[in-house]
């Protein structure tokens, strides 16, 4: 039996309008081409690293694959559903059910405690056990003592652990991580990666990760290299 594709992207392109006369790769109608001709296919439980230099379009591709933005051309299918054919609310619903995120800059809400930050996506899907579930995941990332602490009271590594707990608390099918160790020192970064891959294994999550760290990329089953907006 052939494993179905969890994410499938065909001929993805992204252009943004630009009036910046210094832009190198401007097309005739003054738009800036960020991505072109990207094809991606990821099966359930797989892990994919998107690598490339700064400005190569990695984060844009991640955003397109996760439905945070729409491609100019091409299509993205998540669990066989075409994201371009959905409206924003439908995409939001899909994210709520199936997708988790980890960001380079953690993106925790400063006015919420660690526990409340993890509870947030659970509450969005109406989980009555939000508080206890969130508590469990914070315990798994080693922060059971810091439930009531606010982001500004936590170190960078601890903030990213909260973000990981938040991402896994909803038991997503797919986890998108944008440079998850980019803001951390090497040692802390290493611990975060181990935690991430361990949870990925135990929770059977599909992982899509943007990184410029080759050693981290090698931990993934597939690597997609991008240069100048093109797959290489």
């Amino acid at each position: 039996m052939v494993e179905p594709f969890v994410i499938k992207a065909q001929n993805l392109s992204k252009r943004v309008s630009s009036v910046d006369r210094t832009a190198v790769r401007t097309t005739e109608n003054n738009s800036l081409q960020i991505l072109s001709g990207i094809d991606v296919e990821i099966k359930k439980g797989d892990s994919l690293a998107i690598v490339g230099r700064s400005g190569s379009g990695k984060t844009t591709l991640l955003g397109l694959l996760a439905g945070l933005d729409l491609p100019s051309e091409g299509a993205v299918y998540i669990l066989d559903r075409n994201l371009s054919a959905m409206d924003e609310d439908e995409r939001a619903e899909l994210r709520a059910k199936h997708i988790g995120f980890i960001f380079q800059s953690f993106q925790l809400l400063p006015s919420l405690s660690a526990l409340e930050n993890v509870m947030l996506p659970l509450e969005l899907r109406g989980d009555k056990q939000a508080q206890s579930e969130a508590g469990k995941f914070l315990e798994r990332v080693g922060l059971s003592e810091r439930l009531d602490h606010h982001p500004h009271q936590l170190s960078g590594g601890e903030q990213q652990r909260v973000a990981i707990a938040r991402a896994f608390a909803c038991k997503p099918s797919i986890l998108f991580a944008d440079e998850p160790t980019g803001n951390l020192d090497r040692e802390t970064g290493q611990q975060i990666i181990e935690l991430l891959f361990e949870l990925n294994r135990t929770e059977h999550t599909t992982l899509v990760m943007v990184t410029h760290d080759d050693s981290l990329a090698k931990k993934c089953k597939h690597i997609l290299r991008i240069d100048g907006g093109r797959q290489v």
């Binding site: 609310d89 939001a92 899909l94 994210r95 059910k97 997708i99 995120f101 993106q107 969005l124």
Partner: peptide, 12 residues
């Protein structure tokens, strides 16, 4: 934006 990323609908 974060709520939307986490799946909240615009109405909410």
């Amino acid at each position: 934006a974060l709520l939307r990323t986490l799946g909240a609908k615009s109405k909410l």
